[in-house]
Amino acid sequence: MKGPAPLRGLSPLFLSLPLNHTDTPPVSICEAAPVPYVSSWRTEPTSQSITEDELGLQGRRPSCRPPPQLQPMPKREGFKKVCRTEEESPCPFPGLPSGVLEMRVKEGSKIRNLMGFAMARMQGEKAGSGEGASSAGLRQVVFTGSGRAVTKTITCAEIMKRKVGCLHQLTKLQYKVVKEVWESDQGGASEMTVHRTVPSISILLSKDPLDPREPGYQPPEALSALWEDKDGAEPAAPTCKRPHVAASHSSFLQPKRLCLGEGVSVLPPH
């Protein structure tokens, strides 16, 4: 990840933000310009599309706050986002054939649309009308999503696993760099480029076996074995330290079940 690049012309308070310890990953600012106060970007009169990551991540930012006097001054914040590009990140699955169906899940995507399309392609029955012969369906599909779409991405993959069955899964996490260009409203030449890193997830689902040694591999039918079955039926293991230090990922599931007896209400209600 990029560390905070040399910051020129920024208020000292902004500089002192503990960027690395907030919920949002660090942001580095390239071209110096007055920095708009983040949470007030929403109040911009222009309804320029402020997309998922901004609202989601920045809404939580105020725990480390910039100087409050910036807030009631709309003039200072006359910045418009001109463009937003996601930088090409390396494919998390090396060796994947190029023709694989990639479902890019966005925050506003409807699950029924995504699943309707993806299921049709995977099952292959309905695809016959458009493409002709390919009735067997695809062997693999990748779901990717970043920022606030991560949850939806996982949900899609989980639904597909349940519906199709016998799917091997490989999950990868990485930061994705998003470049944004902001421009001043008042016609000044000031322009600002912001590099933001958002967490993203890529889930490969495959009908063919995958390498089980790869980190993030999940065999088929590991269906929620992590959390369910075994209703405290087993004696609580006296020591809950890892029974065996495991190199292979399959044993990831094993120690958890041993300790089911002890865990009570660790999460608060959601």
């Binding site: 992590l226 405290g232 330290k241 120690p255 002890e262």
Partner: peptide
């Protein structure tokens, strides 16, 4: 909303 079901809890969870 009830709490999620019993969860595994080791030292390193």
């Amino acid at each position: 909303k009830r709490l999620p079901r019993k969860l595994p809890k080791r030292r390193n969870d």
